[in-house]
Design a protein around this nucleic acid. Structure first.
Length: 116
DNA sequence: ATACTGACTAATC
DNA sequence: TGATTAGCCAGTA
């Protein structure tokens, strides 16, 4: 299975109202060092049927790059799901982060390992 | 093949 | 702690 296909799958598994980091997704895809490629993929490859707005960097900051149609589109989509975004374009990963523990991450990975 | 880029992160100070 | 630095690696030219 192609790396970007796995990225797509993992992103689609992010529940509404939660956010994940690039590094997390890379890890769940079996390529812990490909966080940059996750960003590349979301920007250039898919974007269809993929909730890319639920992906932020490891500090909780929304993407600074202007890949969304308008500057605040990502923010509006998140807030529409109940995710609080501070004025400096940041979300609280403690509150809204998907898989806050390694145990959760491993559980997810075990669930999908046959697809990886 | 080489160089540069970037929706990133972990290490270091 | 917070701010730099250094490493990362698929794509692109």
């Amino acid at each position: 299975m192609d790396f970007y296909q796995r990225v797509t799958m993992v992103c689609q598994a992010i529940p509404s109202g939660k956010v994940a980091t690039y590094g997390q997704i890379a890890l769940l895809c079996g390529c812990p060092r490909n966080s940059r490629q996750v960003g590349y993929g979301l920007n250039k490859k898919m974007t269809e049927d993929v909730p890319a707005h639920r992906v932020v960097n490891h500090q909780g900051y929304l993407s600074g790059a202007q890949s969304f149609e308008t500057y605040d589109l990502q923010r509006r989509l998140l807030e529409a799901e109940g995710v609080e975004v501070s004025s400096d374009q940041r979300v609280d990963l403690k509150k809204f982060g998907w898989h806050n523990t390694m145990e959760d991450a491993y559980a997810f990975r075990a669930l999908f390992e046959d697809l990886i």
